[in-house]
Design a protein around this nucleic acid. Sequence first.
DNA 1: TCCTATCTAGATATATATATCTGGATATTC
DNA 2: GAATATCCAGATATATATATCTAGATAGGA
Lengths: 154, 154
Amino acid sequence: MLVSRTSQYAVQALIYMATQPSAAPVLNKDIASRLGVPAPYLAKILQSLAKGNLLFSFRGRLGGFCLREGGDKITLMQILLLTEGPTFTQTCLLGLKKCSDETACPLHFRWAPVKKKIIDLLEETTLEKLAKAVETGKYRLADVPGNLFDEIKA
Amino acid sequence: MLVSRTSQYAVQALIYMATQPSAAPVLNKDIASRLGVPAPYLAKILQSLAKGNLLFSFRGRLGGFCLREGGDKITLMQILLLTEGPTFTQTCLLGLKKCSDETACPLHFRWAPVKKKIIDLLEETTLEKLAKAVETGKYRLADVPGNLFDEIKA
DNA sequence: TCCTATCTAGATATATATATCTGGATATTC
DNA sequence: GAATATCCAGATATATATATCTAGATAGGA
């Protein structure tokens, strides 16, 4: 497992929001149903993303969640730093608490260039790019393609 | 988290075994104490590695664990396929159950080359290489450098 | 003002990974 | 054969991640 389920839900949700018109807030339950993900759990994740300033939340009728202004430019790295914790790029593959250039595990220097590729990818991949990819219709955001009821309504 | 703690313990233990003279079996409790890892848990892991034919086990007095013949050539990939499960290289970053070139998530093709780097590393990195690195004394296998008692005895 | 729909916060429940315990099987030594 | 040291297998315990529940706060509309 590369990242937690929480992170996966977070990224999926944010990509979905980036594909939606930014005027109206998006409802937690709509995101959850679109992604086929448990709504109460997703709500918790969206709350923490809001606390992390990746999105705005509005209560009451007509409430919901919006990407912050310029949210298109949010990178995967920014999301994962929130959901996986601020040290997730620094963890040692072997699990050592201390593993740096000075005091390294035997994998450290072999892993370093690969890790750099991962970090580069996470930093250069924005919600905008991913949302555009989804909008072409060639890529899937979720396993189940929404529930039938939603599809018929739309 | 890139791999589970179980996988980390497994790799650490196997590297350690590769640094030991292959004649005599290595004891679970010695590995555990050297790595600073819970012995009963490590025992379970070693058992599964033995079932996966990465090492031999011997019961009774003078028992213990040995790398199988040619065990030096075991790769990280072989280990992780056992400890993470046979599909761990195929899992989708976003968590989709189905994510292949035909039916892909929006990250699929961006992730593919990075994933290839990871797989290449895992497949080309053998216990032999890692053991040699450790034997130079420049690299650490564990956080705690064995317990003092062991060091004094040695 | 009242009703409804949303997010919010904290408590609770469930599943999974991690860790431990217990009794037994096996092999060596005496 | 008895004593000891190891691995083995299954049951149990604990910690963490995942998921749900409940009551409340907020905002809009009738």
